[in-house]
């Protein structure tokens, strides 16, 4: 192409590199980082957190990890889609959804 304006692309893979029939290898979903779908980020106030585990239980994507001796739950931001269920369900209201600028 000789046009001056460069077309940017968000393509993951070249046409010729796609597997036949778009098959996907087992266990590869972990590489599919869905966190960039998110527009709001859960921010935890650890002062108010009672380590009840509601966020861990209610998260529809299971992104919260038990931090054990540190006594809180931490979202894996590679997969958190920012739905806000954790903030809504938190009995201590210690999770705030903060809008992320793109």
């Amino acid at each position: 192409m000789s046009a001056k304006t460069i077309v940017t692309t968000e393509a993951l893979m070249k046409v010729g590199d796609l597997p036949l029939g778009l098959t996907v290898q087992p266990g590869s979903t972990v590489d599919f980082k869905t966190g960039d779908w998110r527009s709001a980020l859960p921010v935890l106030d650890r002062e108010k957190c009672s380590y009840c585990g509601f966020c861990y239980v209610y998260c529809p994507d299971g992104v919260y990890q038990d931090m054990g001796p540190e006594k809180y739950y931490k979202p894996d931001l590679d997969y958190c889609k920012g739905c806000g269920v954790c903030a809504h369900e938190c009995p201590k209201k210690c999770i705030q959804m903060v809008i992320q600028e793109v």
């Binding site: 029939g21 778009l22 098959t23 996907v24 290898q25 087992p26």
Partner: peptide, 8 residues
């Protein structure tokens, strides 16, 4: 094993 019909 492989998956067919994944999201694109």
């Amino acid at each position: 094993p492989l998956s067919l019909g994944a999201l694109g």
